[in-house]
Design a protein around this nucleic acid. Sequence first.
DNA 1: TTAGGGTTAG
Length: 649
Amino acid sequence: MTEVVFPQTPASFRIISSFMIVAAVAAASPPISPPYLNSNPGSFRDRKQLLFKLQKCKSIQHASPIHAHIIKNGNPNDPFILFELLRICSRCCSIEYASTIFRQTPDPNVFLYTAFIEVLVSSGAYSDGIRTYFQMIKDFILPDHYIIPLVLKACGSALDLKSGEQIHCQVMKFGMSSDRFVRVKLMELYGKCGEFNDAKKVFDEMPQRDVVASTVMISCYLDHGLVSKAIDEFRLVSTKDNVCWTAVIDGLVRNGEMNYALELFREMQMAGVKPNEVTIVCLLSACAQLGALKLGKWVHSYVEKYNIEVNHIVGSALVNMYSRCGDIDEAASLFEDLKARDVTTYNSMIVGYALNGKSIEAIKIFQRMKHEGVKPTSITFSGVLNACSHGGLVDIGFDIFESMETEYGIERRIEHYGCMVDLLGRIGRLQEAYDFIQKGNIAPDNIIWGSLLSASRIHKKFELGERVAKILLEYGAADSGTYILLSNVYASRGKFKEAAQVRAKLREEGVQKEPGCSSIEVNNEIHEFLLGDIRHPEREAIYSKLKELNDMLESEDYAPATDVISQDIEEHEKRWALSIHSERLAICYGLISTKPCTTIRVVKNLRVCNDCHSVIKLISKITQRKIVVRDRNRFHHFENGVCSCGDYW
DNA sequence: TTAGGGTTAG
């Protein structure tokens, strides 16, 4: 290791010593000896060489011996050298090292302010970045075209509209309004703060629009759900590059416009624009949300064919796509083959196993992650506790729940408490679940109470169910799903009047009931079905198949669970109301439009009801088809009359 | 001699 020798001059000692400490600490591992220590100190050639070496540094460890050498032999306050050092800090998000350098710089110029603010902004310390900028103004240093966009970016990220507006005034005062970079960041600031009119005004006043500015404007709209405005703007862009295409595809996915996003991807290819890895991640996210396995596989083959780098983000997106499309074996095999794995990749795999009811596998991955020294996050625990819940693994679940704070120092959040309530509820330990909620350190929300309500209904503990229901109503925080559950609890006990009252309350309070919707991918297209949907072009064949199945179910000794229908209507009407649930229509379409023996995959936005669950089990037996249904909470793999969830979901 | 913009997973 380079020996650190402190200089003899007392006046320079204070500054140099603090640099030396930081440099020495950072240099501790691994030791790298600069090969130029014997060169002539302070010469022009030496300085140029130093700057060149610093520009190539990728870590503080590499830079600190050079820094130590500069302090010992050269001029430690050389602004060009300091600038390069701060740039390295920026690349490594090292605020501490950068702050020491900046604090000790006697009169930082605008370049050094820029470089230091860049370190702060790239590390997410936006407010510190903004404060530093205003300090610079206070010190009578004029801002330039570089520092303004940077600090505007900080204002946008911190949603600090007030500071942003102040800087906008300075932009006008200093005559920087025509700068493209400044304008783009002003738009971004206003867009992020929801001030579309101001963003649009800046955009419209641009002397020449370019693709970058248009992309920002489009993203502003899409971030706030203004899809048609975004598309209008997108159509006006004459030369769209892959970032612009990706931004609009991603925005459509985020706004739930999946088919539209896929349509635009096709259009992008027709236009001859090659997607990058960000485009791929957005597409995989769309496929995962849709449960579109074939399309997802196609995107995967595209990645392989065009050698798109499978970094840890693309890797996680692929694992996520396969597991959310119900092909957990492919997800696992891909996970094993990945070259780059980080906490996110592990999380995707754990959450995937949990969703697919593979509890033991999820726990094994969690243990492997620990063994490999990857630090878990809050999401890791949501996944692994969920897996414990799905597998009825109470003791392991409680051990992991306890270890979150004691072993990992991760705060337990409401979703983790929810998993524990679900875990106890699932195996029928309802009173314990109730006590757990009561004595917990968090305020339970409607999801937690809803989970207990659902468990009460499944285990036929109606008294507890009613007690929980009353708590939910008192809170006044029940969502539509909770109201439906509550209404179902009453209906199950034959209390139709109360069930009707709950539904009336739901309407009175204007709680929007999310309509049940199921989708199925056939021939690379997503077909959606609502309750009793008759919009599909092949509706006649679908309903004919439904009738045929209903007749076959009669001979299977099937008793419809009409108790889930809370309306006081005739029995045959209840039977009909159940048989036209969206998932059954989607399955019927799958049966008539796919080859015999192939797996049918359906995605539903809500939980599958009891009756559909029983019926789908029977359909899998009658038709000898594997049927995979992803509902709001998890996967159900139906095969030969049995479901992987063990009839608890 | 010092530098800069838009799109990513759970």
